[in-house]
Design a protein around this nucleic acid. Structure first.
Lengths: 290, 290
DNA sequence: TGAATTGTGAACAATATTTTACAGATGCAG
DNA sequence: CTGCATCTGTAAAATATTGTTCACAATTCA
């Protein structure tokens, strides 16, 4: 396709990689709020995207326009075309993709899932879980199911940096009895169990519960059988246009939890992160000379 | 409704009758091709609507604007509002929680990240990657960094069910040379590399590339150095109100990819899933009696 | 370190806007 | 038809704003 026939948006997307840092920054604003952000004055655009005026002038020339006014009038022409096309009028996630594209349908579902989940979620409970996870008197054990293992891993990787006394119980359920041996009322057990609830997990939860461990459960909107004995639980909506379930909502809650726990434990975390940096450096050094 | 809250279009329509001949003519052009026609210069607008410049100036003042630039910037604001995404603008995520609660701030950021990412993402590229991943002639290898390992794991777990010939390269980079041994132009390598780009990953990518492997890269908005040699890449926005980066957007794209690849490979996948069910059943049986 | 990129500030050029004065056009009332 | 008020266009000048460009310093990155 010749550049002449490409929309400015397409040009910006296609040539994004060959742009410099400031140009990318500018382009991102343009794409993000397209095309409105490009319709003001050049100084306005520069200021709002945080680059200098000459940078804007340089970019539009790089794109092949004689000057900013030419660029802008091309943009205006697109406003006319875009707004008169009723299909494009309704908003989408990826504005230039058809509504029916899987990406748009997915983003819609996820957005709906988040809203539905949050409508049931009590922020007080969220805050309590934060406090629990930040409490390093208690040992934190994490375990997931076949699919949700990745979530468990994700939480573990972060918690390991943020606080001491964290264990990821491998998905190999043969090893679980060993962990149960040492489990008592000083333990917190984070369990991920979504649809196709796994029997092994249920049994593990029951035994941990009998030993007095506090269970924090991430499950789906219908609720794993472990709900009954969980001290806290998050019911995440997970339906998407796919044969599989979505892990987005639980991950979103996880990330928010991680952010909050980290904030609560900041002093401790900072020390741990510094030490970690140091260790990484020394590993790198070590490698360099071998 | 006060005039202040009326859109310019409504104002023009409501006050149409009290306008003079030339003003009506001008207004008609404005409404007919709204709002694009009002975004050029005042002389342009005058010429195209067949009235004189002062007439335009007089009209906008009659409408209550200090001058044409003010009128125009109001118009621009409407373009922005009309085209920008209303999906979550007037919609708190957790309605009963304060705006400032971390969960709401997180959901906002994520929503923004999705939109920003999608504004740069070419759906054609997404479709191409789908086709690649669905092609079982090629071996699929997956590898991630320290944090993004969970994403690699997530993709692996699903792909393993959907298609044969999938490998998760462990994060222990000591083992990578073994994988490189067998790597050639029949291989696809999915790499996750976000900020704090890891040198080991870069070197791995370079060597894989030299051997002809096709690289599919998941990186952040700034782009890992691997971008240069990647056949396809996804730049995911990852900034959230946290000391850590968000993995939500890459995971969203992953899930959509998984859904599409699964659909493309449905016959094959169905057989594999049945076999898998069967294997699970037999394992469970086996356990029950030991 | 050296090259490329970016920002600053200013000067200048180019455009756009506003305003004014006036003349022609229009429409209407008498 | 006339005269008057209103509307409109023209032209031009004054002003304001905007775009362009440059030199140079600061920054970044390899």
């Amino acid at each position: 396709m010749s550049e002449g026939k490409m929309s400015i948006r397409e040009q910006l997307q296609n040539r994004f990689d060959e742009l410099t840092r400031a140009e990318k920054q500018l382009t991102q604003l343009l794409l993000q709020n397209y095309p409105a952000s490009g319709l003001g004055s050049i100084t306005d655009l520069a200021k709002r995207s945080g680059v200098s005026t000459p940078t804007v002038a340089r970019l539009v020339q790089k794109l092949g326009f004689a000057g900013f006014p030419q660029f802008q009038s091309a943009l205006r022409a697109e406003v006319g075309a875009e707004l008169s096309n009723p299909i494009d009028k309704y908003n989408k996630w990826a504005e230039h993709a058809p509504d029916e594209h899987i990406l748009n349908r997915f983003a819609d579902s996820v957005s709906k899932n988040v809203r539905q989940t949050f409508s049931r979620l009590k922020t007080e409970e969220f805050d309590e879980v934060c406090a629990l996870l930040a409490n390093t008197d208690h040992h934190l054990k994490i375990v997931g199911g076949r699919i949700s293992r990745s979530l468990a891993d994700y939480l573990f990787t972060h918690m390991q940096v943020i606080r001491p006394r964290v264990t990821h119980m491998t998905s190999n359920s043969n090893a679980w009895p060993h962990y149960l041996l040492d489990m008592n009322r000083d333990d917190m057990l984070v369990i991920f169990d979504v649809r196709r609830y796994e029997n092994d997990l249920r049994r593990l939860a029951e035994m941990a519960h009998e030993r007095g461990a506090k269970i924090i459960l991430f499950t789906d909107q219908w609720g794993s059988p472990i709900s009954r004995i969980a001290a806290h639980k998050f019911n995440c909506h997970i339906e998407v246009p796919s044969a599989w379930d979505s892990s987005i909502v639980p991950m979103l809650i996880l990330e928010a939890l991680i952010a909050e726990v980290q904030k609560a434990n900041w002093d401790q975390t900072k020390r741990r992160m510094n030490t970690l940096e140091d260790l990484f450096d020394r590993t790198r050094m070590f490698r360099k000379f071998t």
